[in-house]
Design a protein around this nucleic acid. Structure first.
Length: 881
RNA sequence: GCGAGAGUGGCGGAAUUGGUAGACGCGCUGGUUUUAGGUACCAGUAUCUUAGGAUGUGAGAGUUCGAGUCUCUCCUUUCGCACCA
């Protein structure tokens, strides 16, 4: 780019006017294509990605916060000399577009396109450093054709399969509902009670990668511990044994899974899930049992209550044979046993499991203690009639296994069962295979054709993409229009040519968001999904997004990354090296009670607050004079009417103010409380900096060039102190930006420096040179946060070019040198004085100086000094009594 | 119930390695400028106080010359999982 273009020779305005600055600076970036990047093997790359938004129509504060964090990191890394990629796109498939289509009679594609255009314009007003040439939208065929292609690769490899799974069926609208469309067990439009139906759906074998996903999540050291733990729990690996109980009077067996084989000898009954085949068979001749099973099935609705729900059971009348003792153990149906985990049946050891104990007490089943503690005192305190003993210990009442420790018994019993062919060691996962079929319209079509003769057949490569028809109309039922479009689904079989039927289901939208980060590296490629550019940019160095994606999105993206690696498309094992999960944006909530006793929520901007002389709020009123109540801070939402529109604030204060406030109010990973007065404070800060630079520029006798080093010879103390403050601030800010990611303290440190600078009233060319250096450094340090005003001030300070292309300032050792430091004097750990000492003074000298302090003398007058501790450069603690 | 985190002025938050608690900002109080409001600027703002100090980081104990920070017990709260055998 030409430097000329960025030079504005007009005189500096005495006041800060955000509107003209921001539009001019943004235009300059756009004209210069400042954020377009290409692969440069000579430069270190940095790929910074923020989670792409769903194009709902308007930017909200959560977006502003998320994208500002990513942008600050990107711009900082750019100043560190990295080749920075920061792309943006749209997670464009999804249910809201269908809802809008029904409501407004607009096709989802049109609605989505309009929203993307609006939101793109809004993002641009925020001045984010995105490479817009890489923009992608997941609803476009040039994007989703590659996931269709990839799905078929997985199909070939046997990593996808079809099986029956339950869906929510609305019997009135005759359509499948997404979980979000089921409200209190009823269809959201029809109000009909939703039924569960079993239909064939496609699954991805994520369980085949369970071990690798678990092992590798433990290696992601730059991810928040919380997210790693959540993923570990989600995968939920547990080691144990699967064993067979023979059924009495038949040849059949019942398989159960346990992680505590050491307690096997204490198993006094078995419990199976209500859906278990054995339960259903036993119910055929037992109407009471049948009724119990039905009752359990209907309890499904509220999952939250499930955990606290009363444990209930019903005897099947069938008994099993204990695989070791040969004793008869009754089989029960229990409402707490899950059909979906393990084999849907458990062995119950009431002596050593709380839930089994409760159940046994309730139904008067045997409780046999088989574990005791190695510690005699503990062992004597165990009373199995009072409660279960769940610790591991030493086996008793266990025949040949008695005396073994739990640890030894696990292997011993497992080996015994294995040899008897009655069991084997096994690993169970909580993780289920990923069902990717959705019976919705607005999604990527699944590229499969069903033929009566050939079965499920892949769409031929040359027929990809299977394009989703966009010229459609929704009827009142809300069911997918392509399910009623013969021109879409009537196709010949790709194998035999016979008339066949195209799949009309679409992919779960998590499918699109699982690989978009990789596609940004080559979004223009119409020959392949990814190319060699992917290996230049991947993995993503910094990923920024909401904690709500801690499990599903991040797990699926990690899974896809491994799938793509195994397909030879990329090299990296993991997609995201560092992860930053930003906190929620909260705002005050206010309401009054209406006549019906309901809550009417009042927008925070319409509320007047009265305070007492300490600033504590004493009264809240709305414009009609109604006294209001508050429900505290909660996440900005429509339902509580406490949202704040970023567009209005950009208009009023400018993007830089919004950026400064959202970075300053809280550390990025914590929730942030919105405050309108806080925004004004951020704006005041920028205006103050502007005015100070204005006064400096207009009164300066110093050279406005930056050749000021010669001016720093023989500086006075005051001058030296200011320079030291500049460079201690720089060191702190650099640390905050690189290591800590605490942008709030980085901004605070700059505020502190600016406050010092405003008190620095020295005159003369040396003072001006010191000031010039200080302002220049401040502008560089703040430019990632407030890039527009920083650019303008950069030029007004007499510099050339783009501030964002400058190197991050280097520390100056000379400026940091100090001859004297202040040390604290404590007596018995309490602060009693301060003393200035030479930096190189030894401990004896320091101690002597401290003893001379008047206040210290007073305090130790009638005491004996026992000990003196000198912590170099910090404090002296005198221990006396 | 299990797991992880948090608790500091009127509020958001700072204190990074055990070493000046309350940086920075908001709010509030007083003042200057202004016809006035707003803006801007200046000063003050943890609590008690006999004005020497004393107390103070959810509560209680402990380790230490010294604890917001480390250990233990308890309380409150946020988030996640939720009968996972």
């Amino acid at each position: 780019m030409s430097d000329k273009q960025s030079q504005d020779q007009s005189p500096m305005q005495d006041h800060y006017s955000h509107a003209s600055i921001e539009s001019q600076v943004q235009k300059m970036w756009e004209d210069n294509k400042s954020f377009e990047v290409t692969e440069d093997p000579d430069k270190e790359k940095f790929y910074c990605l923020s989670m792409f938004p769903y194009p709902s129509g308007k930017l909200h504060m959560g977006h502003v916060r998320n994208y500002t964090i990513g942008d600050v990191i990107s711009r900082f890394q750019r100043m560190q000399g990295k080749n920075v990629l920061q792309p943006m796109g749209w997670d464009a498939f999804g249910l809201p577009a269908e809802n809008a289509a029904i409501k407004n009679k607009v096709p989802p594609a049109t609605w989505t396109d309009t929203n993307i255009a609006d939101m793109r314009a809004q993002l641009k007003t925020m001045g984010f450093a995105y490479d817009w040439s890489r923009e992608l939208a997941t609803c476009k065929p040039d994007y989703y054709r590659w996931e269709q292609w990839f799905f078929l690769k997985l199909f070939e490899k046997g990593l996808v399969y079809r099986k029956k799974a339950t869906v929510n069926w609305d019997p009135v609208d005759q359509t499948v509902l997404a979980n979000e469309q089921v409200v209190d067990g009823r269809g959201w439009r029809s109000g009909a009670i939703v039924e569960q139906r079993e239909i064939d759906q496609w699954f991805l074998k994520i369980t085949a990668y369970a071990d690798e996903l678990l092992d590798d999540v433990r290696k992601l050291e730059d991810w928040p511990q919380q997210v790693r733990t959540m993923q570990e729990n989600w995968i939920g690996r547990s080691e144990g044994i699967e064993l067979e109980f023979g059924l009495e009077h038949t040849e059949e067996t019942l398989s159960v899974f346990t992680t505590r084989p050491d307690t096997l000898m204490g198993a006094t009954y078995l419990a199976v899930a209500p859906q278990h085949p054995l339960a259903e068979r036993a119910a055929v001749e037992n109407p009471d049992l049948q009724a119990f099973i039905e009752e359990c099935k209907n309890m499904k609705a509220t999952e939250a209550e499930m955990a606290t729900m009363e444990k209930k059971g019903f005897a099947t009348g069938v008994s099993a044979i204990h695989p070791i003792s040969g004793e008869s153990v009754p089989i029960w149906v229990a409402n707490f046993v899950l059909m979906s985990y393990g084999s849907g049946a458990v062995m119950a050891v009431p002596a050593h499991d709380e839930r089994d104990w409760d159940f046994a007490k309730k139904y008067k089943l045997n409780i046999n203690q088989v574990i005791t503690s190695a510690n005699e005192t503990v062992a004597n305190s165990i009373n199995i009639e009072e409660g279960a003993y769940i610790e591991k210990g030493v086996l008793i009442n266990s025949g040949e296994f008695s005396g073994l420790t739990s640890q030894e018994a696990v292997d011993g019993i497992a080996n015994f069962l294995q040899e008897a062919k009655k069991g084997r060691k096994t690993i169970n996962y909580r993780l289920r295979d990923w069902g990717v079929s959705r019976q919705r319209y607005w999604g990527c079509p699944i590229p499969i054709i069903y033929c009566d003769d050939c079965g499920a057949v892949a769409v031929a490569d040359e027929d990809l993409p299977v394009e989703l028809p966009t010229d459609i109309e929704f009827d009142e039922s809300g069911s997918s229009p392509i399910k009623k479009m013969p021109e879409f689904y009537e196709v010949p079989c790709p194998k035999c040519g016979k008339a066949a039927t195209r799949e009309t289901d679409t992919f779960d939208t998590f499918f699109e968001s699982s690989w978009y980060y990789a596609r940004y590296t080559g979004p223009d490629n119409d020959k392949s999904m990814l190319d060699e550019r992917a290996d230049y940019w991947l993995p993503v160095d910094q990923y920024v997004g909401g904690i709500e994606h801690a499990v599903l999105h991040l797990l699926y993206a990690r899974f896809f990354n491994k799938l793509m690696r195994d397909e030879g498309l990329i090299e990296a094992d993991e997609p995201f090296t560092k992860l930053l999960t930003q906190g929620m944006v909260l705002a005050d909530t206010f309401y009054y009670e209406n006549e019906a006793g309901g809550q009417e929520w009042v927008a925070p901007k319409d509320v007047t607050l009265d305070t007492n002389e300490k600033g504590k709020v004493t009264k809240m009123t709305d414009p009609q004079g109604r006294a209001l109540k508050t429900d505290g801070m909660s996440k900005m939402s429509k339902s509580k009417n406490n949202g704040v529109d970023p567009a209005e604030l950009i208009q009023k204060y400018g993007a830089d103010t919004l950026r400064v406030f959202s970075m300053f109010a809280a550390p990025p990973d914590q929730s942030m409380e919105w405050s309108n007065t806080g925004v004004e404070g951020a704006n005041r800060f920028i205006k103050r900096l502007w005015r100070q630079v204005y006064e400096h520029v207009n009164s300066s006798t110093a050279p406005t060039t930056n050749k000021i080093d010669s001016a720093f010879e023989d500086l006075s103390n005051l001058h030296q102190e200011l320079r030291r403050k500049v460079y201690t601030t720089l060191e702190k800010v650099t640390d905050d930006m690189t290591r800590r990611f605490t942008f709030n303290t980085a901004i605070a440190a700059n505020m502190e420096l600016i406050n010092e600078l405003s008190k620095f009233n020295e005159k003369g060319s040396q003072a001006d040179a010191v000031r010039q250096e200080a302002f220049k450094t401040i502008v560089l340090m703040l430019s990632p946060v407030m890039p527009h005003v920083a650019q303008e001030l950069w030029v007004k300070l007499g510099n050339e070019g783009l501030v964002m292309d400058q190197d991050w300032p280097e520390s100056d050792e000379d400026a940091l040198v100090q001859s004297n430091i202040q040390m604290m004097i404590q007596i018995n750990g309490k602060l009693r004085g301060k003393v200035d000492v030479a930096v190189d003074a030894d401990d004896k000298k320091v101690e002597a100086l401290a003893m001379e302090n008047e206040n210290v003398k007073q305090f130790i007058e009638d005491k004996t000094v026992r000990k003196v501790i000198v912590v170099k450069g910090r404090l002296i603690n005198i221990v006396a009594n």
